[in-house]
């Protein structure tokens, strides 16, 4: 109990001191694929504050996904520095990155990436339980929290369905619930609506907005769909590995 309270106290302190959640400092990323090297990012400077709802916009191949991967601590930069919630990811090893992701970041992907052998409810609860199985602190009320978040994304009556029994939109809602259930500081969504029709896309985005305002979760998502950009609080356009336009609404 003592540990938990100390941790949360620390979190609060950090929040007060530093409202910048993500900062990128002249970040470059080059992929080496045999003899060809691809320069995916060519120098990005970016700060994202707590609670922002940011959209990264650009054509395919522009470097959106690479940028999101770096912010999501899935990958390390070739040059420059990426700082997430105070941790410099350049300095972390694979396990350190995994812990950072587990404690701070939720992901939503274009292809949902649900675990097919688990039900909607189990997929969500699993995300919550990972942290407890890692650091030994049991998560309290995991059942209620999982059911509640699924209720919030509108799937309260589909808890026991397996992914193959859900529609694309429903799957993406489960994915969002899964990303949000552990109340992360940051949720990254890589083209979350690319596989959905426009009506479903709207619903999914509205859920994300709602969560953003309710839980003060920071959202960053990428898209090339103009309709989606409407929802963004902050819009970043990326072309050829550089931020070419920035807009706040």
């Amino acid at each position: 109990m003592l540990v938990v309270s100390l941790n949360s106290e620390k979190k609060i302190n950090q929040k007060l001191e530093n409202s910048v959640l993500v900062s990128l400092d002249s970040v470059k990323k080059t992929y080496e694929d045999g003899k060809i090297s691809v320069r995916a990012l060519r120098g990005i400077d970016l700060k994202i504050a707590e609670g922002e709802f940011t959209t990264v916009y650009g054509p395919s191949g522009s470097g959106k996904t690479t940028l999101l991967n770096l912010i999501g601590a899935l990958d390390k930069p070739s040059e420059g520095q990426v700082k997430i919630n105070g941790s410099i990811i350049n300095e972390l090893d694979r396990n350190g990155l995994a812990l950072l992701r587990r404690d701070n970041i939720g992901f939503v992907f274009q292809s949902y990436n649900l675990i097919p052998v688990l039900t909607a409810y189990e997929n969500v609860e699993f995300a919550l339980k990972i942290s407890s199985s890692n650091n030994g602190n049991p998560v309290r009320n995991s059942k209620e929290r999982s059911a509640q978040i699924l209720e919030q994304v509108g799937l309260g009556d589909m808890l026991d369905r397996r992914p193959n029994e859900l529609s694309g939109g429903q799957k993406q809602r489960v994915a969002i619930a899964r990303a949000l259930v552990k109340e992360p500081r940051l949720v990254l969504a890589d083209e979350p609506t690319a596989n959905l029709d426009s009506k479903t896309s709207k619903e999914v985005l509205e859920i994300m907005l709602e969560m953003n305002s309710k839980l003060k979760t920071t959202f960053i998502f990428s898209t090339h769909d103009p309709m989606v950009m409407e929802y963004a609080g902050r819009l970043l356009e990326i072309r050829d590995g550089k931020i070419t336009r920035e807009e706040r609404r």
Binding site: L74, A98, L99, R102, F107, N113, P116, A127, I130
Partner: peptide, 16 residues
């Protein structure tokens, strides 16, 4: 593969 990738993104350690 994608499942494993997702689990890693969610913060599962290699050991798990």
């Amino acid at each position: 593969v994608e499942e494993i990738g997702m689990m890693k993104a969610m913060g599962l350690s290699e050991k798990q």
